[in-house]
Nucleic acid binder design. Sequence first.
DNA 1: CCTAGCCGCTGGTCAGACCAGTCACTAGGT
DNA 2: ACCTAGTGACTGGTCTGACCAGCGGCTAGG
Lengths: 255, 255
Amino acid sequence: MFEPVERSRAFERVVEQIEQAIYSGQLKPGDHLPAERALVEEFKVGRSTVREALRILESLGLLHTTPGSPLGPKVSASNVAGLHRMLHGFVQMENVSLADLVQYRMISGSAANLLAAHLRSPEHLAQMATAIKKMESTPPSATRQFAEQDLQFHQAIADASGNNLLNVVNGIINKLIVNLMADAINKSVDPDRTREDFLALHRQLHDAIEQQDGELAAHLARSSLLDVYGPLLSTEERKRLQLLIPQASRPCDPS
Amino acid sequence: MFEPVERSRAFERVVEQIEQAIYSGQLKPGDHLPAERALVEEFKVGRSTVREALRILESLGLLHTTPGSPLGPKVSASNVAGLHRMLHGFVQMENVSLADLVQYRMISGSAANLLAAHLRSPEHLAQMATAIKKMESTPPSATRQFAEQDLQFHQAIADASGNNLLNVVNGIINKLIVNLMADAINKSVDPDRTREDFLALHRQLHDAIEQQDGELAAHLARSSLLDVYGPLLSTEERKRLQLLIPQASRPCDPS
DNA sequence: CCTAGCCGCTGGTCAGACCAGTCACTAGGT
DNA sequence: ACCTAGTGACTGGTCTGACCAGCGGCTAGG
């Protein structure tokens, strides 16, 4: 009949006020909050209270404090870093398997490609094409630059898909997979997938998106992920991922 | 050539140690940490340092402190609450549109249904069936119980899909949509979608999953979301969501 | 045996102090 | 006039010690 009431703590109300100021745009990214000792007077609370509030806001990815700076805590540009940390914690805590992560990426990655195929502009195609060209002309030793251009390529697709939420979560999950599998990938993935295969896949993807073939673009994302990470999974898990790849044997819609 | 080094602060190292203890299973959900004053002696730092660390862990959703309890901070069962908060902040900060949220839910919801159709067990089907029955026999006034059974129904699908990560993110996005649209839904959605339509959809979904028709189950998720939230969107946005619904006019694979 | 009160603990808050580091300003040299 | 080195007023990070309200177990009284 009655709702439970949680005793509010002073620092929580401080957090709420600053949080609201950021979300409402009153405090823009790059702005600076007053110094801790100034906030103490403004909020009429002790310094430790202010500091605990700032620690929370910092862990939420909304603030960044730099000691010594006379400008005070800086409002962050985005809180994706906090999201990444939280999702990392979730994966650790709930023992999310690699199979689940890859499956998730197959879902969201293919959807992003599908959308990109329909919504891409000539600029997006150009960015993808130049990224491929630069990758081709990069010496095999320069792994750093190669990865940079790969990022550019996928960034173009993400931009074209037009859904920021989808791209951010997709990117985080991707990073999580790479982080968790850092060792396994180095010994298993690199030898299998040669540089030429990698480039061929990118060219196919570019062509599919250019021709607005969303289904093909989506399929390429799904199958390539399965190719790359399949060897690291059990037969059972691979079977689960296979379910996401449509079997074209279904009867066609007569319309 | 060299990587930047961030000055580590004492409370961060405290956070890391406790975080690691939780992630590694050394501290299980429901366990209790020593009291603050005991942690002070254990970590050899001041109480404010310990408290700032605890505030961070609490905001990450890993801990829950109850004043007065002689047991100390309790390790939470999961950090989905923190994930929800962080994602909520992201939506606020980046001005993620309702269209993006609904689109995301169309993607992950349809994938969950597809997987559930293939992986469902008889128990899952039974849970779905009883949920439908209870919804049918609920008086129209008891909105509370009706929603409870709806939750049960979708929980069965989530369980059947076999991907915890997918379900959690899906659930959070769903909650965000409901929260953000609380007012708009009450005046727009309820009149349109009658109780009977709602139940019919659930029956169709149950049947599709029973017959392992993944494509149909996925399609139902996509189209029903579009039906419900479409009226709240602009024509342009609706068109973007339409892209996710496959047009069966594509040529069939001759195999 | 049950109950009412006490007392020791908990977390929440505050004040005050010190440290190391940063930045701006200024006085000195060129 | 310019550059440089030094200084001092700040910043955040840490610690100490204190007080409060509230919870819970213990105990003395019914």
